[in-house]
Design a protein around this nucleic acid. Structure first.
Length: 522
DNA sequence: TCAAATT
């Protein structure tokens, strides 16, 4: 299929221009008004080709619909636009002037998180007239950058207006980092009409060696896979070209989870499950776990760096039952929100984490003592020093214990079913377990005593002994200790889960204790 | 080597 000569001019021959920042007023007017462009199919911009065809008008039907609230009417063939890269402090009323220049607005809705109400940084916009949408897209899409944003505004038909495109979107891997959108376009062009071609880049603008290519049809995408996947090895690439369908949203979520697992060194059977059998419920667990981990990093990492904002807010939005928490008031009294986190976005992360813990049943269905007793019991008191790292730490461990203590089994307990019984605490003197049941733990937090150590490992089974070694002279922890389980499987599970568990700048070392009599060869 | 976001 021949492309227009227009396309030929889209090469990335010049270094990316800095994006123009719109001034305080979002309304373009006078000399700064958006340039009038012919209705285009291919919009040039920094890192992306975006050929965005509008859905065809319904044949001959010119019926109208009336907005229930503002009474505006829209054409039957109106296009719902997705607006992206909106600063989170802009609401509908702030955005209206910007978009009204292109026509009367039928509906403009800023997307909010359903639980937290948090602005998602994007919106849907429907004009009364189809033509207005086309004008707005041509004038704004990738053309302007709203104040505070680093990337240009997105104005394009919402996914709902077409099929979303997931079934015709390809991921291209093993490109070399010098290849531009233009190069990728050339490569994929023979197999169909390309609607979008994006090379993924890091913050520095350097290619990540992969790209997305969206064809107009699934069949075209499929033929590109057949023709190109593995067909060649780009100079400098470590293996042959990868061409496959891009991840679905679900897969992306899973991928992010896996990254979190990698990042935080968590492994918990109950949480690992969603990789096989994905469920919202499991997702909620994972999200929470990640939130907890984020809290434990509070003093070292900017949470917004660790997680996309949407994720952070989702984390807080679900309690352990996978349901939205009803009250937003802390009830547990376990800990106060970390005082060290002062970024405005952050309290909303931390508070819900604490809140969400209230979703834990106070009594087991089987009549055993409350799970809460297990994890509240003997938690360190940090009230004498500033509630910073230690406080978040406390939350972190408390949280880990909650999950694993409530769901220690390798299968998720369906909601409403009897929960597995938490492992019994057998208080003891220094008891050593059988071979393979005794762990050596290093890099413990200074504040951890025997009890905290036990708390940390209870989720993995019955702890028959826990001992933190103390310096006799100073009565300070030596930051290592021993934990014994009653069976080797628990010990192994604990190693899996906790070895490498990051606390502040350090990672726990969790390994089998060397048997006393295991004489080393030399 | 899988995006920032799609009610």
């Amino acid at each position: 299929m021949a492309r227009s000569t227009q396309t030929e001019t889209r090469s990335q021959q010049h270094p990316p221009q800095p994006h123009h920042l719109v001034p305080t007023s979002l309304v373009f007017s006078g000399p700064g008004a958006p340039p009038t462009q012919p209705p285009l199919l291919l919009i040039p911009h920094q890192h992306q080709y975006a050929q965005i065809p509008f859905p065809k008008p319904m044949n001959g039907s010119e019926s109208i619909s009336i907005h229930p609230e503002n009474g505006t009417m829209k054409d039957q063939d109106a296009i719902k636009l997705f607006i992206g890269q909106i600063p989170r402090n802009l609401e509908e009323k702030d955005l209206k002037p910007l978009f009204e220049q292109f026509g009367k607005i039928h509906e403009l809705t800023v997307l909010k998180d359903r639980y937290t109400g948090m602005h998602k940084g994007c919106a849907f916009l429907t004009y009364c007239a189809r033509e207005s949408a086309i004008k707005a897209q041509n004038a704004l899409h990738e053309q302007k950058t709203l104040p505070g944003m680093t990337r240009p505004i997105q104005v394009k038909p919402a996914d709902s207006e077409s099929r979303g495109g997931r079934d015709r979107k390809l991921f291209v891997g093993m490109l070399n980092k010098q290849q531009t959108e233009e190069d990728v376009y050339r490569l994929f062009e023979p197999y169909g009409v390309i609607e979008e071609c994006t090379v993924l880049r890091g913050p520095d603008g350097n290619s990540k060696g992969c790209a997305f290519v969206k064809y107009s049809t699934h069949a075209e995408a499929q033929s590109a896979i057949s023709a190109l996947h593995g067909s060649q090895t780009m100079p400098g690439a470590s293996s042959s070209l990868v061409v496959k369908f891009a991840d679905t949203d679900k897969e992306r979520t899973i991928r992010r989870m896996q990254q979190m697992v990698g990042q935080f060194g968590i492994f918990n059977p109950a949480v690992a499950l969603p990789f096989g059998t994905y469920s919202t419920y499991a997702h909620a667990l994972m999200q929470q776990q990640a939130a907890i981990m984020a809290a434990s990093h509070g003093s070292y990492l900017t949470p917004s760096v660790a997680f996309p904002a949407t994720q952070i807010h989702q984390m807080g939005a679900l309690n352990i039952n996978g349901l939205p928490p009803t009250p937003m008031t802390p009830v547990s009294g376990l800990s106060s929100p970390p005082a060290n986190i002062t970024t405005s976005a952050v309290p909303s992360i931390v508070t819900p984490i604490v809140n969400s813990f209230t979703g834990i049943p106070h009594h087991q269905p089987n009549g055993h003592p409350a799970v809460e007793a297990v994890y509240t019991n003997g938690l360190p008191t940090y009230s004498t020093h500033s509630p910073t790292a230690a406080d978040t730490l406390q939350q972190a461990f408390t949280g880990v214990q909650q999950y694993t203590a409530i769901y220690p089994a390798t299968t998720l307990t369906p909601i409403g079913q009897t929960l597995p019984q938490p492992p019994q605490v057998i208080q003891q003197q220094q008891r050593e377990g059988p071979e393979g049941c005794n762990l050596f733990i290093y890099h413990l937090p200074q504040e951890f005593g025997d009890n905290e150590l036990m708390q940390m490992f209870l989720p993995f089974g019955t702890v028959i002994s826990s001992k933190v070694f103390m310096d006799r002279a100073t009565n300070q922890s030596k930051c290592f200790g021993f934990v014994s389980f009653d069976n080797p499987a628990s010990a192994q599970a604990a190693i899996q889960a906790m070895n490498g568990f990051q606390i502040g700048m350090k990672r726990l070392k969790v390994q089998l204790k060397r048997p006393k009599d295991a004489s080393r060869p030399y």
